[in-house]
Amino acid sequence: MNGTGRAVTRVLTVAGVPALLVIVWQLYSAASQNFYVPAPGRVAQAFAETWFSERILDDVLPSLARLLAGYALAVAAGVGAGVAIGLSPRLRAAAEPVLEFFRAIPPPVLVPLIMLLAGIGDGMKVLVIASGCVWPILLNTVEGVRALDEVLSDTCRMYGVRGLSRLRHLVLRGASPQIMAGLRQALSIGIILMVISEMFASSSGLGFTIVLFQRGFQIAEMWSGILLLGLLGYVLALLFRRLERRVLSWHSGRGVGRA
């Protein structure tokens, strides 16, 4: 197969099914006249009109900023507490059932609870996101720190690697595969909470805007919002995977080396 032939095959493999789906969508919307399923062209137009405007500044960016703030808070608290609990077997035994319980609470029920404590402002939303994201990070960090290699630990003791340096070179790095797994779970929870907290009580933000469109029966606009949320989820997952690959390059490399 020559170069162009291979390139064509590759494009077909990647874009074939998505293109097919769009065509089916187009045919369906044309044939059925279903009010809730506008044509793809109409949604694309609505997407451009709706989101390439001041809405980006008024709704999208503030949503993202709150997500980022809440997520960062959760990372700091989750990794910090996770390291402390993971390093102490007694603390871990005492905290385990409590943590299992908090992790099992479906994060969205935190929204009404935290509204009670923190009102309905930005603070509430950041707090909701943080308090939902913190558990998977915390539990995975505890697990990662608990499973630190004993020989490596002894090596650090023998060579005088202690304190902050031990934390940096041994504890955090050693637990990083589990910490990253926790961060990944937390990211999807964070996006869910970002949307829900805005749907509940808000006058701006992505979640609020999409619900507004739905209530106003602006169907194409609503779909464009769903599409935007989807894109957002996709891009954040992509960025996260990049970060993960960088942080864990030693880990995946080792796996390949052993196989």
């Binding site: 769903i226 989807g230 989820g233 996709y234």
Partner: peptide, 10 residues
């Protein structure tokens, strides 16, 4: 990765 809560309005 599309958050399923995006489907709430739908």
């Amino acid at each position: 990765p599309i958050p399923s809560v995006a489907l709430i309005p739908l």
